[in-house]
Amino acid sequence: MRSSLARVLEGYEQAAAEAEERLAAAADIGAVADIERDLLGRRSRFTAAKRQLGDLDPGERAEAGRRLNAARQRVETSVAAARTRLTAAARADRHAAERLDLTERLPQAAPLRRGSFHPVTQARDRLEDVFIGMGYTVAEGPEVESAWYNFEALNIPEWHPARGSFDTIFVNLGEPEQVMLRSHTSPVQIRVMENRKPPIYIVAPGRTFRADTADATHLPAFNQIEGLAIDRNITMGDLAGTIDEFVRAFFGTEVKSRLRPSYFPFTEPSAEFDISRPDGSWLELGGCGMVHPNVLRNCGIDPEQWQGFAFGFGIDRLAVMRHEIDDIREFVNNDVRFLSQF
């Protein structure tokens, strides 16, 4: 009995030692699997040897078990190493076989299928064009902002109740709640006013963020456009007239606008503006007002010399209205069956 086990053990150890050479010679993953099955599988010599362990004296069993396991571990390590080697080799072979010289620029057959502009881009371009026609330039800025640009410079101090209403998404940079994804494009207004002397006539379109769960009418990332006009004698009448001119240019001459008093920390007086619908009712479109003197002061502009208005509204909603889109999530799904409709 003992000698038979000794034979089995020795045989297995020998086989394990030979396995390394066999594995080194293996040309592909299949060969490795064969060797593995032979030495470690259910019907392998290892299994057979292990079964015989039970017949040994307890004193001998420990020693034999240790030897058997050591041999098994050697086999396992070798198999894993062979696998890694062969996978890397396969990868390298594939890469070598597929090598291309990208500067071999042969003429390409031109596809005769037109792509498409994203509906939000189209809405944004149309808005920009209307305001460009009214004498505005287009300003842009970063999407990750500091509390100064997103709130403080806009007359929203840290304790202000309005802060909560923005559902800001904060970023793990700096002190807590000091860096955020901008909740409106108003920071761009601040950056422009800090860097340029009036007169200023700009619109600031771009991506904005709120901690809203995505549903048919909300996305955490959406698009806004804001306008800012700062000059010596810009009045609230100019604001109402500008909104009116924009509405007629963008929606059609039959569409009317109206202003209602509202509240924003960064404008005073503040208003919301509505546009008329064919049935005579009003649709709230956005907010506006005369730039708060504190905001001007924060940007180094003397409010006794300069005054102006600001307004803002959503871009995505205009695209939704124009194309009668019923689920705003389509804007970020990027399904070509959706995109190619526009």
């Binding site: 005769l112 037109r114 792509g115 498409s116 994203h118 970020v332 990027n334 070509v336 995109l339």
Partner: peptide
């Protein structure tokens, strides 16, 4: 777009 590409806007 002329080259047949659709504009996407993932979040």
């Amino acid at each position: 777009v002329g080259a047949g590409c659709c504009e996407t806007q993932p979040m």
